[in-house]
């Protein structure tokens, strides 16, 4: 008997469960059946809640991944735009400064009755930084030896140097800071004469000032009437200090040039008329 029941266990279970199922089908959702269903629903509800949470977290995760990817792409795109605009800003500033310099050149006064040839500084050697530069204008543009070259500083010209070598389309300009350069000068406002000499550095020395000279620090120095190269009245620089003189008969002053020799861009060569030449 026991062996029979064991072997037929599944069949008896099936009959039992079928009876329960038929009872559920015939009872409908009334009375106890409805109550049992509601009870079972509350028992099974956490499973549904879990599945909804799983789906929501999966959706949220995919949204987060998508957002991270989008943010990353947008970040890369914005970085590129930033680089582009940083470059444009640099270019804008460069053009703005060039525009200012060129505007100043255009307003250059013509009271020396000389032809003004604007040129760009194209070559400058680091080992000869305060000695010479090469400009992009030469014999074809009317340049010749000893033509004075000035630069534009705050709406007024300032001494830069003179042409020492001329080629077809370029010229070599010896700077006023070159040790070989010597320019007669006058100190305003007292109109005291002296000789400005280059030191192969960013400073100049004004020599041959009389001991009783009333020259003070801050006085401006201009080209004198004795200069054979520069027209008179062109700004050289300002007195910044007094230097020990080699001679007891004269005293010396240190001049800070008006031209910024660290930043030479556009210059003007003052080409004279045929008679002046």
């Amino acid at each position: 008997m026991e062996d029979f029941l064991t072997r037929r266990r599944s069949s008896f279970t099936f009959l039992f469960l079928t009876a329960i199922n038929i009872a559920l089908l015939t009872a409908h959702l009334t009375g106890y059946v409805g109550t049992i269903k509601d009870l079972l629903y509350y028992v099974l509800f956490p499973a549904q809640d879990v599945s909804a949470r799983i789906v929501r977290s999966g959706q949220k995760f995919s949204q987060n991944v998508s957002e991270v990817i989008n943010v990353h792409q947008e970040n890369a795109k914005l970085k590129k735009m930033l680089e582009k605009y940083a470059y444009l800003e640099t270019e804008y500033r460069r053009f703005f400064e060039e525009n200012e310099r060129l505007r100043n050149l255009v307003n250059f006064p013509k009271y020396w009755e000389r032809k003004q040839v604007a040129a760009n500084v194209i070559t400058r050697e680091p080992q000869s930084w305060f000695q010479w530069v090469i400009i992009d204008k030469g014999a074809d543009d009317g340049i010749y030896l000893d033509v004075p070259v000035v630069a534009w500083v705050r709406n007024s010209p300032a001494v830069l140097g003179r042409v020492a070598e001329v080629y077809q389309n370029s010229s070599k300009v010896v700077l006023i800071t070159n040790a070989l350069s010597a320019t007669p000068a006058q100190v305003k406002p007292h109109n005291e004469d002296g000789l400005v000499q280059g030191q192969n550095s960013q400073y100049l020395v004004l020599d041959y000032l009389l001991p009783e000279s009333r020259v003070l620090v801050g006085n401006e120095v201009y080209t004198g009437t004795l200069s054979s190269v520069f027209p008179p009245g062109v700004l050289i620089g300002k007195i910044s200090d007094f230097a020990p003189s080699e001679s007891d008969e004269f005293k010396s002053a240190v001049i800070r040039p008006a031209v910024n020799f660290s930043s030479l861009r556009e210059v003007v060569a003052l080409v004279g008329t045929r008679q002046q030449r």
């Binding site: 099936f14 329960i20 199922n21 038929i22 099974l44």
Partner: peptide
């Protein structure tokens, strides 16, 4: 469980799945 969660004829899934 299906009959409890769903709105089908109560007991139909239980009967069929058992069978």
């Amino acid at each position: 469980a299906w009959d409890v969660i769903g709105i089908d004829l109560f007991g139909s899934h239980a009967f069929l799945y058992t069978t």
